[in-house]
Design a protein around this nucleic acid. Structure first.
Length: 477
RNA sequence: GGCGCCUUGGCCAAGUGGUAAGGCAGAGGUCUGCAAAAUCUCCAUCUCCGGUUCGAAUCCGGAAGGCGCCUCCA
């Protein structure tokens, strides 16, 4: 039985879809004023895990992720760079797609853009005015927070308390400082669209309510996003959608925890702002994915060099083991048997995922099975039959598919990881192989002292070598 | 000031009332020309103080520390 932590109730709830075997998911996408950073990546990997698991469970999934391609920051940034807004947003959408491709994220079924849904947005605002939740003032339209009495239910805030804590804005068209803009009258030179209230553009929150209800209906199953969006973004989305439709908007609200960099919040001013593009220069995409999943999605995660290195080692170990396993599975001729240990692994996996998508527990289960495999593969006596080895591969791939890891050819991934490491440490591959060749020559000549000297040289580069029956292999230690 | 979260061994991290997963690092063993890799063994009573309970890391109250949101933020 799948349980999901619902921000609305602050507890884990059994997942019951609105329609049998079908799940409708909306995830707030990014506002494309800049390139995606690793915080975005965390959110995307988290929702990706969720979507993949629903598919794994056999649900028909409808997954919508938007692009917010019009807002203050975008206008500001475009002005700064003296480029057209469209140029800016398209550039960043491209960068986003590069990141999603590299991270092997499941493609959403729909990816609506705010600027392409002005009609729906205007329509929703009109409904809100008609329903008495919004008012026009000076060419802008505001949502009246006071008029919507369950305002604050998601973020557990009380409107009066909030007003008390607000510094009053001078000169405002708003009736109430907490009211938020649904439609903003445009200043000269800003992008603008026609509306019943004059030329203008949508406020920040309305596009999600309009697009989500358009594609998923008035009420749908899951709405996801980063923790920081709970207030005001999601709170406002609820007010807008429910104010317009009169129906409950979302059944389960899912929010991922934040990512820090070396223990600090990522921000431009601290200079620790890491784009996905940059992270991919130093780490294999699968390492990044696996890293994100090694902590439960609601728990804060720290993007630190130490943690990333550790993850890299783990993944390397897994693929190394998978490589050995594949060798022993060759004789199975396509036959596979899932023995008790393999089956228990799958059970562990499902149990962990059913528990609010606890990928951290899955990671532990992976450890257990890989350790078991390394242990048993080592000697003929304990080695599973080829068909069982094939069965192990199959369960690992099955669980790995949901996490989006361990799907690719072991040899290839091991090489890719090494290449990235070589690049990271600015070490030339040929130099390494030359040294290994030299060492083996010394070994053949039984000149172990010189051979060990070469090994020390390699060690200084951070490389360790393994003499195996098939020759000498090397890896970063 | 308001709302919420977190605090588990040197480090990362599970744990959601039944007697502390896993990993990294460290110590020792097996293997090895020596190593490495792999593997085995060892390594915590859960920030503190009260309470509820036969029994709590897990529930309640309080203290200390850290953090997030309340303005843009995944």
């Amino acid at each position: 039985m799948l349980k999901i932590y619902n921000t609305l109730s602050e507890r884990k709830e059994e997942f019951v879809p609105l329609e049998k075997n079908k799940v409708k998911i909306y995830a707030c996408g990014m506002t494309v004023y800049d390139k995606p950073h690793i915080g975005h990546a965390r959110k995307e990997v988290a929702i990706d895990l969720i979507v993949r698991y629903f598919k794994y469970l056999g649900y028909e999934t409808v997954y919508v992720r938007n692009f917010t391609d019009i807002d203050d920051k975008i206008i500001e940034r475009a002005n700064e760079r003296e480029i057209d807004i469209k140029v800016l947003t398209e550039e960043n959408i491209d960068a986003f797609y590069k990141a999603t491709t590299a991270l092997d994220l499941v493609e959403p079924d729909m990816e609506p853009k705010a600027t392409e849904h002005i009609v729906e947005i205007v329509g929703m605002i009109e409904k809100l005015i008609r329903n008495g939740y919004a008012y026009e003032a000076g060419g802008s339209v505001y949502f009246s927070v006071k008029s919507f009495n369950s305002y604050g239910k998601l973020s557990r805030r009380n409107v009066d308390d909030m007003i008390a804590g607000t510094r009053f804005e001078v000169e405002t068209e708003k009736n109430n400082p907490l009211d938020f803009a649904l439609w903003k009258s445009s200043k000269p030179g800003e992008p603008q669209w026609e509306s019943p209230w004059g030329m203008g553009r949508p406020g920040w929150h309305i596009e999600c309510s309009a697009m989500a209800t358009k594609y998923l209906g008035d009420t749908f199953d899951i709405h996801a996003g980063g923790r920081d969006l709970i207030f005001p973004h999601h709170e406002n989305e609820i007010a807008q959608a429910e104010g317009a439709t009169g129906k409950p908007f979302v059944k389960y609200w899912v929010h991922n925890g934040f990512l820090t960099v070396e223990g600090e919040k990522m921000s431009k001013s601290l200079g620790n702002f890491i784009t996905v593009e940059d992270a991919l220069k130093d780490y294999h995409p699968e390492v990044l994915r696996y890293f994100m999943l090694s902590t439960h999605y609601r728990t804060p995660i720290d993007f630190s060099i130490a943690n990333l290195r550790e993850t890299e080692k783990k993944l390397y170990y897994f693929y190394q083991t998978l490589k050995n396993l594949s060798f022993f599975a060759l004789k199975a001729n396509g036959e596979e048997v899932r023995n008790e240990r393999a089956q228990s692994f799958i059970n562990e996996f499902k149990e962990a995922m059913d528990d609010d998508f606890n990928s951290a527990k899955v990671v532990a289960a992976f450890y257990g099975i890989f350790k078991h495999l390394n242990d048993s593969l080592i000697s003929k006596k304990t080695r599973p039959a080829p068909e069982e080895c094939a069965g192990f591969i199959s369960v690992i791939r099955e669980a790995g598919e949901v996490l989006g890891v361990l799907q690719r050819d072991s040899v290839k991934v091991l090489e890719e990881i090494k290449d990235i490491q070589l690049q990271r440490y600015s070490i030339n591959k040929d130099d390494v192989e030359n040294l290994i060749y030299q060492r083996n020559e010394f070994r053949k000549a039984k000149d172990f002292e010189k051979a060990d000297g070469v090994r020390d040289e390699l060690k200084n580069l951070g490389i360790s070598i393994q003499d195996t029956p098939d020759g000498t292999e090397w890896s970063f230690s």
